[in-house]
Write a protein that binds this DNA or RNA. Sequence first.
DNA 1: GATTTATGGTAAT
DNA 2: TTACCCTAAATCT
Length: 299
Amino acid sequence: MPEGHTIHRLAAALTARLGGHEVRASSPQGRFAEEAAVIDGARVRRVSAHGKHLFVEYAGRGAPVVHVHLGLGGRVVVGDTAAPAPRGAIRLRLETADAFADVRAPTVCELIDPARQRALIARLGPDLLARSPDPATARRRVSRSRVAIGALLLDQKLFAGVGNAYRSELLFRCGFSPWMPGSEVGADGFDRLWEEARRLLADGRRTGRVATVDRADLPRGQRRSAGRHLPPEDEASGSAVARARARETYVYKRADLPCRRCGSVVRTALQAGRDVYWCPTCQPGPADPSSARTDGAVG
DNA sequence: GATTTATGGTAAT
DNA sequence: TTACCCTAAATCT
């Protein structure tokens, strides 16, 4: 689930509930027990995000920071009640008298110092959800790279916060084949990708969903719900929600279905280790490597 | 009940 | 490029 928009949304939700409070910390699952004891009862200053990384910051100079990365399957369940009895594996539970946050299945959950936090952020590229992220480095590196733009978009050193769903949707909306080398995208093309990434991620942060289809491109019956905010309680689970989400993208997860714009069959292939989706008509450009390889090997 | 999948990232190769 | 990591939810049988 979590691309940058989810993490920023979480940071805001957690700051609102925990910021300024002395917060109980525990590890019902046990794997974060020692660390939780260190911060148990400490006052949370705020919860911040950079790209897909989440930081729980505590009051006081040099105070430790909880660093969380949710990876693929991780999630944070937020509630506005006293914390219920733990169910399942909860790596970290933060709670006040009337709110709680459960961190489940993160790939990273660690206690670090502020210097380490700064180092982590420095290692990442500009966060597309920051107030005014600087595109200069990414623009230069993309323009000089022979690597396909679809692979470059997943590089967190260039585009912190972009994940697999937004990659395909961004490329569709800007009309680029995922297989076009970065060097052929052009300065203007880069700028369009950059601005589109900022816009889509900001929409996602606002609404809680990766809904990238313009109203005009939806069937009439679906236009009414487009852009509606997702209630937080629906965010965590439910196959109905998952199905609804699958109808909110141009190409992501739509292999073999018709393109919403032109009706061509949406294609998919592995790129940079992840499934990328694209419309061969709306996104003209180099043929993907699999078709090229077939030509060469079989011909 | 078992298996697969996931909007991620790293380390080894 | 591949293997692997954690876990929950979706998908299978």
